[in-house]
Write a protein that binds this DNA or RNA. Structure first.
Lengths: 349, 349
DNA sequence: CTCGCATCTGACAACGTTGTCCAGGCTCTA
DNA sequence: TAGAGCCTGGACAACGTTGTCAGATGCGAG
């Protein structure tokens, strides 16, 4: 093949691979540009005959409207962003899906990304979404300073936080009753005769972790139990550290007889540790885990409803987008104690 | 306030909530439009002093580049789309996350959506993504006819299918060795003395389900076992039907002594059924499930690596986007048999 | 002091679409 | 048959950005 042709080929593939535009369709159908636009958007004022001609040209050329250009012109992208921690975490799947369904019901597309629990990445991602001019933003915060979003919010990006409140700005937030849930879960253990109860949770700089710890302390105080330092492990994130923490508080003469775990990842690891133990130790975990009912014993948990969390946040977002003025609000959803056996074990000593 | 002002206010809030543009920044900094563009994009040829002035104006106005307009001009959106079945399914979380990581490494954003296993919704979603001019598309097919994507692919949208092959078009596909995996899993049961082995799987119109069924049949034939109709249940999708199917093949004088389950959802339900049974029944499942090792007995599975599936597909996509010409290819990833106890139970009779 | 060159800056068109507005042709009525 | 009014279609500007290109400025050398 001659050089020129090969070059032309490559150039043709340069942009959107040489996609036809409305202009091309118009030329082929022998009509004006705007008429094509009218047909594509189902606007009135086109005779059936013209419409048919245009439609034929569209099909023949494989035309598809360029929404980027449309967005530029219209000012609304019909898309919302979701910044979450990690899509691979089973807790966020249903949440994301719930947000997606609400978005879909409003004719919007959902763009989501993972922050990997890194504040910097959260910011980078949220701002990238803003640069794409998403109409709104649902954020599960990784960081604790969201002032970087102030210009965006002022510029009209509807923003709702989920699972944890925003840091240093005033914004909507939808969260579970972490404090009450944890308090209830620990009270459940106390009601079954436990007094030496361990707590293993995330770093208290994470809001949910702090709240759950507060619930633990409150329940203990309610029962007049003085919490010992060695019963608590904060900031155990990876399985090895959780394991070590659990083994530690389970050893010695005044070992704990029950453990309250601060999130699903911790719960899973502790279940493993307890399975290797000869004596029964009670366990209540925050967050439900799959197959919890099939374990021996079944794992009692304080469950939060990820899907409802997501749905509530998304619905609030779209209410804002519909133009309703709303003052920033804090919406708290109840948790549910699901008893399956592990939390009803009595202390052995 | 005079009428005009109120009207102006409303109009100002009309579009992106009155966002400043490069023009505004330029005016404030007292420089030309293009100079702002240069600063924003880190292009050379701007004196430090000018740059500082522009930067100040940017900060003061809270300017953020409008990527929609940029896309229109540049022709690349630096985003790819992922169409999957259901984000809430634990199998797709890691897959999506893996695709996201690859995209991120290439400076691209991932837009994903769920088809809910509905072919029509898959098409709607894929085409919506194309209208947004994603550079590429990763699709986990729900339908079996993807000719609707032909114009898009021709127009330059790089497309890779995952988990199941495309229907009626020639395109890249990355999948697990469903046939080999199932065959190996069933052979494992046969090696432990089973001959009456049940199969519970999805509708054979789903490619993966058909392949796994084929693997089951092959393993049985290898062992010279004639499969009886009542040992097989195809198309059991909801838990109730799976339960009924399992109970049925587990009853009667020639009940099956082992079951091979075709996907994670089926496996979970069957584990529940077997837990209620007094006699031990062997089980091997396709797809790994969380906590499978903690059950009594642990669940032996044929595991596929969702993350690798996603990563492989995404990497192939970006190789295409980098301009390499590649003929459509079928990439098959191996599965791994993980023995945990349930698959090593011997038949009781 | 002037020329040449390098460096910095800005005017302008273009990307593909939609909103505005006007022209031309038609129908209907007087 | 003329005029009013409606219907259809198209020309044009605008959305906010970037690529092109040419003009302005400053500096050093001759």
């Amino acid at each position: 093949m001659p050089e020129t042709t090969r070059r032309a080929d490559r150039l043709a593939g340069n942009r959107y691979g040489n996609r036809p535009t409305m202009k091309d369709v118009a030329a082929r159908a022998g009509v004006g540009l705007k008429t094509v636009s009218r047909v594509v958007n189902g606007e009135p004022g086109v005779t059936p005959d013209t419409e048919r001609r245009v439609q034929e040209a569209i099909d023949a050329l494989g035309f598809r409207r360029n929404d980027s250009a449309r967005v530029l012109r219209k000012g609304r992208t019909a898309s919302i962003g979701l910044v979450l921690e990690d899509l691979a975490d089973p807790f966020y799947g249903p949440l994301s899906r719930a947000v997606e369904e609400v978005a879909r019901a409003h004719g919007a597309l959902l763009i989501n990304g993972s922050s990997a629990e890194d504040p910097e990445r959260e910011q980078e991602l949220a701002l990238a979404l803003c640069a794409r001019r998403v109409d709104g933003l649902v954020v599960i915060p990784a960081g604790d300073d969201h002032r970087y979003l102030e210009p965006e919010i002022r510029a009209g990006v509807a923003t709702v936080f989920v699972d944890r409140p925003a840091g240093r700005i005033d914004a909507d937030v939808v969260l579970s009753d972490n404090y009450g849930g944890a308090r209830g879960g620990v009270a459940h253990l106390i009601a079954h005769g436990h007094r030496r109860i361990g707590f293993i949770g995330d770093m208290p700089r994470i809001h949910t972790a702090a709240e759950r710890l507060r619930g633990y302390r409150a329940a203990m105080e309610d029962a007049g139990i003085t919490v010992e330092e060695r019963w608590m492990s904060l900031g155990a994130t990876n399985p090895e550290r959780v394991r070590r923490a659990a083994e530690e508080m389970l050893s010695g003469p005044d070992a704990v007889t029950a453990i309250f775990t601060g999130n699903n990842r911790v719960t899973v690891t502790v279940v493993r540790v307890l399975a290797e133990l000869s004596r029964p130790v009670a366990l209540v975990g925050f967050d439900d885990i799959e197959l919890a009912d099939l374990l021996q014993p079944g794992v009692t948990v304080v469950a939060q409803d990820a899907a409802t969390l997501g749905r509530t946040a998304a619905e609030r977002l779209f209410r804002r987008l519909d133009g309703t003025f709303l003052a920033p609000e804090r919406i708290e959803l109840p948790t549910r104690l699901i008893t399956r056996g592990s939390g009803e074990l009595r202390p052995t000593d």
